[in-house]
């Protein structure tokens, strides 16, 4: 059954399949992001625009929010939350402040990556304004106060009484822009 036409056809379809699977590899990147967004995995937080005219929500539920700060790798910065703990009402916007300092005599750009735990809470943690939305350039020796404006959604599951917002600053080696 030396079948020249058949060989050609099989080869062509397998080559096509190869190309498809190469594309699928790249397709995993957005799939992964979407999957994490939907499930709140990775503690990725949600960005919203604040609606000022919104009715105030009245609830006596208080959520304890803890603030955490980290520096990745050899970035010569220090990062401190100005407040360790806040007690917030769901449905209301609050501001927290972090202080960052460049301890090197060189201008450096960094990017803060937020993360919320427990993971479920990240689906209900909404930020209207954040220093993590853009790269931060710190001049040599500069100190900066940076603001994050956030609300905890009123639909936060009942069993979550406290959550942690954590930021890690990474050195930006190349131009990058994210959420």
């Amino acid at each position: 059954m030396d079948n020249k036409k058949g060989v050609k056809k099989t080869t062509a379809s397998l080559l096509l399949f190869t190309v498809f699977m190469f594309g699928f590899g790249y397709g995993l990147v957005p799939l992964y992001d979407v999957f994490c967004k939907i499930t709140g995995l990775n503690g990725k937080t949600i960005r919203v625009t604040e609606n000022i005219n919104r009715e105030a929500i009245v609830t006596d539920r208080l959520i304890k929010v803890q603030f955490d700060a980290n520096i990745n790798g050899d970035l010569p910065w220090t990062l401190q939350p100005n407040q360790r703990i806040m007690r917030v009402q769901p449905g209301k916007f609050y501001e927290a402040v972090y202080t960052v300092k460049n301890i090197k005599d060189k201008d450096i750009t960094g990017q803060a990556i937020p993360s919320v735990s427990p993971q479920v809470a990240s689906l209900y943690f909404k930020k209207a304004e954040c220093f993590c939305f853009v790269n931060q350039l710190l001049k040599a020796g500069e100190t900066k106060e940076m603001v994050v404006r956030f609300e905890v959604d009123k639909d936060l599951p009942e069993d979550v009484a406290e959550l942690t917002l954590s930021y890690t600053f990474f050195r930006v080696k190349k131009v990058a822009s994210i959420n």
Binding site: L14, F17, T18, V19, F20, M21, F22, G23, F24, G25, Y26, L28
Partner: peptide, 11 residues
């Protein structure tokens, strides 16, 4: 092989 190696190549 055909289904998995291209994904590694992408990675």
């Amino acid at each position: 092989l055909i289904a998995s190696l291209p994904v590694l190549a992408g990675g």
